[in-house]
Amino acid sequence: MALKDLPVDECLLQGNASCPGCPATIGLRLVLKALGKKTIMVVPACCTAVIESLYPYTSFDVPVMNIAFEAAAAGASGVEAALRQQGRTDITVVAWAGDGGTYDIGLQALSGALERGTNFIYICYNNQIYSNTGIQRSGATPFAAWTTTTVGGKTEFRKELGEIILAHHIPYAAQTCISYPEDLYNKIKKAMSIKGSKYVEILAPCPPGWRFSMDKTLEMGRLAVDTGAWSLWECENDVMTFNGKSKLLLEKKIERKPIEEWIKYQGRFSHLFKPELDEKRLQAIQEHIDHLWERYRKCYVKI
């Protein structure tokens, strides 16, 4: 799949309420290109609820149901059941939620829907904060990152939701990033072709939340993959495959960049560099990532 083969049609209309340089709209454009118009989206409270813009207009050219924060997966289950009753199997039901609505508030409804095997795609766009309400900490916020509720830096590490999802043994789960459009498109297309519960998580570097220049959105995503802070993988029927750069990193074909390469561009980590270098916490972040990749190698590299 090359860029020129992607469809020209846009289901996300211009002139919406997103910030300049928004990663969610880049992700939404790609996802809706893959899904096409025969889609019903379920959106809980998240930035996308704002991107829909003001009543009586919306910037989405597909049906969208807005629902409470914790109920994205439950709402999607309801939509899917109603469509099944009407015999309309050609329509894809998609729950699109942020990391707050997936890692923290919506986890219970998501776990329930995955356990029931609801035929839908759950997409989490992960910007590692509650950006809609004003940059509060979430379960996805990495260690030592500044948010408005963790002023000196978060003291806990982020949780690995991907592995919690894998424990449900669903037909398809994947992790991707907006910086790799072909990878994202292919994963959504693959998820569409499979029956059962599907989960796709997209890393979305948020310029106002992470405090970096708005033209660097895609660069931040690429650096996150290069430094190992984020990984691209897919798991189909419990067979795990790493994709793209992450595959090369896992097989040690290319060297992983030090984590400073990624965090030095982000204002949310600036307290680690000034007034003086906080080597202790930088080392803790690096050790955490080294440990994570060591575990990946033990679990997923065939000897």
């Binding site: 209309l13 002139g15 813009s53 003001l54 009543y55 009586p56 207009y57 919306t58 910037s59």
Partner: peptide
Amino acid sequence: SLSYPKKGAMGKTGSW
């Protein structure tokens, strides 16, 4: 309350 799709739901955002 039902919203309908419209290009430029927030006006001409080029002014930003």
